[in-house]
Simulated scan of single mutants.
Amino acid sequence: MPTIGRKTAIVLLIVSSLLVTICRQFLVNALDDIISSGPFSQAFIGFIILPTAGNCAELLTATIVAARGDFDLAIGVSVGSSIQMSLFVTPFVVLAGWAMNKEMTMYFGLFEIVALFATTFLVNSLILSSKTNALEGSILCACYFIMGVGAYLFPT
């Protein structure tokens, strides 16, 4: 398999980042119409669709790395992304909204609090054991599925 140069990789990374940004902007502009006319609630789009679309590259990277057997890197990519979102992006967006005189808070409803607490507790307990198996992976997938169904059915 031929390798590409460092400058080519940087250019490809920049171009792909710009294309993802443009596609993400189209998605965000269509959200109000999707919520008002479609069957999906704001909670479902916020918990399932946007994170999947926004973290598609990280999901693919973690899957490829895990398939190669480097589970430490796969967990680092997955958990690192979640930590980045919770400790940097969410507070930064609230502060940016405050600077632009937009009303934004870090208020989460009951469903969001329970879902985030339960998933954080589950992932933490699975990571602390430092060994994993297919049952634990299926538990995480089931948790994601249950959270998705709950976000779909939860009244707005």
Rank of each mutant, 00 (worst) to 15 (best):
G148H: 06
T8M: 07
A118R: 01
R6H: 12
T119M: 10
P51V: 03
F121K: 05
T61W: 08
M104A: 11
I4Y: 06
L50D: 02
T63Y: 10
A134F: 12
D33M: 09
A57P: 03
I75R: 08
F88L: 09
L12Y: 08
T3G: 10
L126S: 04
V15K: 09
V77R: 00
L31F: 09
I49E: 04
P51R: 01
G137W: 05
A118C: 05
M147I: 15
R6E: 10
G38H: 02
L110G: 14
I45K: 00
I22N: 09
M1I: 08
G148F: 03
N133M: 07
S130T: 14
F108Q: 13
T52S: 11
T132L: 09
I83S: 07
M106Q: 15
F71K: 12
I127W: 10
S129T: 14
A74S: 11
L87V: 12
T120Q: 02
M104F: 15
S16Q: 10
P51S: 01
A67R: 15
I139D: 04
S81F: 10
D33T: 07
G148A: 13
L116S: 11
M106W: 13
F92A: 05
L73T: 15
I139M: 09
C141S: 14
S36E: 11
A57K: 02
T90C: 10
T21D: 04
M104Q: 13
P91I: 00
I22Q: 08
G46P: 01
C56T: 12
A43M: 07
A115K: 00
P51I: 07
S86N: 06
F117W: 05
R68M: 07
I34Y: 07
L13Q: 08
R6S: 14
G46A: 03
I146V: 13
F40I: 03
A43G: 02
L59K: 02
L59I: 06
A118W: 01
T90N: 11
I139P: 01
S138N: 13
N133G: 05
T156G: 09
R24M: 14
V123T: 04
M106I: 12
I14E: 07
L13H: 10
L18A: 12
F47H: 03
V77F: 01
Y107W: 14
V123H: 00
T132D: 03
T52K: 08
G76L: 04
I34G: 02
A9W: 12
F71A: 05
D72L: 15
V20L: 13
